[in-house]
């Protein structure tokens, strides 16, 4: 407002500038504001709580490392950590291998129009009643259920498959398959077709085309699929407690038990932060590998 020569024009310009700024803020700010308040602040609070203490069963603000010392010194925590990590990694690899032929079929065998329909049908279950689908597997897995009847028909023993790693894996696959299928199919469908044609014209054998051209080109998408399968399996706790029957004490179960049974908030916070740290490291390493330059 220092220029008095053209007061009307300056204030008009200034109004215009402010209006544009406010208009932009109206669209930019809402989501980050919501996420800061209801996502970043709660996670920050969790970090703070890991340094608090529990006095007379009441959570009290404090600055102590006792929860960290206690949890990191527990042998069964580390056993549970490696079990969780190993089981989820094994599931992620198995789910990726299981999904690959299907993704290949959608990308290279199906016509484009069919592919869209198949992709739609593959992702739809991701959003539907996960708990009920887990409950349903029980019918297939128990003694005298569908799977054991089939095994018996082929001369096997036909015992109940509940509480086995196979049951836990089925639970993980139920959760993660749709996501892995989408990522793999998009990665494969986007492999440059001219490279494939060129290799074929130069007489490359089908196996060489798959391993030397298609797989390396689709590597980022395939690796991200593996990563998401791991993330989802690692965080899952219903299959582990229900299909796995508590045989597999995983970290998410430990976290819920600590809070539900003992009000041990600081310890639960420490276990949660360990989980997040291991997830971040895994994600970081995987993404680096997925996008690394070809040597």
């Amino acid at each position: 407002m220092t220029s008095s020569a053209f007061p009307a024009r300056t204030s008009g310009r200034r109004f215009h500038f402010l209006f544009n700024r406010a208009w932009q803020a109206l669209w930019v700010l809402p989501l980050p504001a919501w996420l800061l308040l209801f996502f970043a602040v709660p996670l920050g609070l969790l970090v703070a709580i890991s340094f608090w203490s529990v006095v007379n069963y009441r959570l009290t603000p404090d600055a102590t490392l006792s929860a960290w010392r206690y949890v990191l010194g527990l042998d069964f925590l580390w056993a549970s950590f490696w079990r969780s990590y190993g089981l989820s990694m094994a599931s992620a690899v198995a789910i990726s291998l299981l999904a690959f032929p299907a993704s290949y079929a959608m990308a290279f065998v199906a016509a484009p129009r069919q592919r869209l329909i198949l992709l739609g049908l593959a992702i739809a279950p991701f959003f539907t009643s996960y708990l009920v689908r887990i409950y349903s597997w029980q019918v297939f897995l128990t003694e005298g259920g569908v799977i054991s009847s089939v095994i018996q028909a082929f001369g096997g023993k036909g015992e109940s498959l509940l509480n086995t790693y196979f049951a836990l894996f089925l639970g993980h696959a139920t959760l993660a398959l749709p996501v892995v299928l989408i990522m793999q199919t998009i990665a494969l469908a986007n492999v440059d077709r001219t490279g494939i044609s060129a290799a074929a014209n130069l007489g490359a054998r089908p196996g060489a085309i798959l391993f030397r051209i298609i797989l390396p080109a689709a590597r980022p998408g395939l690796t991200l699929g593996l990563l998401f399968a791991f993330l989802l399996s690692y965080a899952e706790f219903v299959s582990a407690s229900y299909l796995g029957g508590g045989t597999f004490q995983t970290l998410p179960i430990l976290v819920t038990d600590l809070v539900r049974a003992g009000q041990q908030w600081p310890r639960a916070a420490v276990v949660s932060l360990l989980m997040i740290a291991s997830l971040l490291i895994t994600a970081f390493v995987t993404v680096l590998w997925a996008y690394r330059e070809k040597g």
């Binding site: 299981l98 032929p101 065998v109 349903s136 089908p206």
Partner: peptide
């Protein structure tokens, strides 16, 4: 594009996955 394995293999894989997704 000649597939490294017969077409039937890939289609069977697709069928298996959809069976797992929709059986429950």
């Amino acid at each position: 594009l000649k597939h490294a394995l017969p077409k039937a293999f890939w289609v069977a894989g697709l069928a298996l996955v959809f069976l797992l997704l929709y059986a429950p």
